[in-house]
Design a protein around this nucleic acid. Structure first.
Lengths: 258, 258
DNA sequence: CAGTGGTCTAGACCACTGC
DNA sequence: CAGTGGTCTAGACCACTGA
């Protein structure tokens, strides 16, 4: 008994999925059917299915069945270079979506004042516990939640600007900062991957086994950090791209899964 | 009964971990102890622990106990700009590790010839099914597996160079390409996150709930793509950083977890 | 050797879905 | 209503660890 039963069953189902016998969107045999097919108890079947769900391969739906997950195409996000200069006023996110023939929306927009926790204070170079203005929202692509975004501004910098107003800024926040003497000249992105929190699973409608990509973007004027934007992306619909130096054909590389 | 039992137990343990009562590296109460503490059956306890393991919070070890996972500091990897120019011959990976006071190693180095699958052919702009030379290895940081790397070269470009030799190249592959008239002028990185395959879990020694970051780096000369490097990183030890435009203090931002 | 987690069974009741 | 997955119990045996 080299390999436990439930792993062998999971491996068998995995092959049938990857091999194409079980197509995306199609339904797996029910748990009682699998019990009979493999001659094991229900709990063993459930262990196998749980393993596949944790890999993001299948998605059980109560009362309906277990289904092979669809692989949606990626959304390309962060190309580089041009992002360093203030854009022409249009929201970069909406523009990118339009180019890709996607529908971009946002919701749950809000503005708050919070105390800077160490992670944020260090990047904005402000004192821990000092006030920061936070503008946050949920972004959607094609009607599905895609990213949770929070932008942090040092309070002294946001005061007297539209950044403190609980409304969208027509000309964009980068332009608003520029008008008040804080021209963005560059940014640093820090990217990592992790499992989602329960809150993120709910807000991004993530199935089990789907990780998130988290990106910290610290934007600078020639003098100081002027903004920290934290984005949490659903990893199964997100591809981040960066061009460094001269790159042929600035169009997109072929999406698709590994 | 709003929330199932095992979730409430998981939530309770999660709080105790995040709150600091259960410190990183410390051992959870054993399963029989938790049974008594919560007055539930063992399977329910195991469901709760499995949920925490899937989040990467704890790590059960057979015969020893279940432990709160340590959060190791991130390894910063891809700073930008200077990567576009051929480096001074030194391996960028080893150099970065040294700066951070880490020990960098590699193993399982091998060179093969394969047929280009669509994903690779498209990025290298070669025909599907044409020959590509693959140089692959496992990279380690502080003795732990950290990244699986495969570099693909069009066969016509690798022929007659050291790239086809099953040995490390002292002066580096970028310099070797340059000597044969293929000077690298830029690259595009494509980054996404996903759950690991079983093979990756084994090779990277990933616990359950730890996703991977996958990066496709396509390098270009002024004429054509000259190399595609695919890296699969253990997400819990990897932070990718990119500088765009002018950024203050090119040192590292503060690592630490969200 | 005792104690730990790993696997597996057999059966129960529940909540949700769709006919 | 029948069929699906979701939760939970009680108990068994195994494999691994460390004293």
């Amino acid at each position: 008994m080299a390999e436990p039963l439930y792993r062998r069953i999971a491996a068998d189902l995995r092959e049938r999925i990857i091999g194409g016998e079980l197509e995306p969107g199609s339904q797996l045999p029910s748990e009682p059917e699998l019990e009979r097919a493999y001659h094991v108890s229900r709990n063993t079947i459930r262990l196998a299915i749980a393993a596949l769900a944790n890999e993001g391969l299948v998605e059980p739906r109560q009362g309906r069945g277990t289904f092979v997950r669809e692989r949606r195409p990626f959304v390309v996000v962060a190309s580089a270079e041009e992002g360093a200069r203030p854009g022409p006023g249009q929201d970069a996110f909406v523009a990118a979506a339009e180019i890709q023939g996607r529908v971009a929306e946002q919701r749950d927009f809000r503005v708050e004042v919070r105390l800077a926790v160490p992670e944020i204070a260090a990047r904005l170079q402000v004192d821990e516990g000092s006030n920061v203005v936070v503008r946050s929202m949920t972004r959607l692509i094609d009607g599905r939640p895609w990213s949770l975004q929070e932008s942090f501004y040092p309070a002294d910098l946001a005061e007297g600007t539209l950044l403190t107003s609980p409304l969208n800024i027509e000309h964009g926040t980068i332009e608003e900062l520029r008008r008040h003497g804080h021209e963005q000249v560059g940014y640093r992105d820090e990217i990592f991957g992790r499992s989602p929190t329960q809150r993120e699973m709910a807000l991004l409608e993530l199935g089990p086994g789907i990780p998130v990509l988290e990106m910290f973007r610290t934007a600078y004027s020639i003098h100081r950090p002027i903004r920290l934007t934290i984005n949490v992306y659903a990893a199964d619909t997100t591809l981040l791209a960066y061009d460094v130096g001269d790159v042929q054909g600035r169009g997109q590389g072929g999406p698709s899964t590994g």
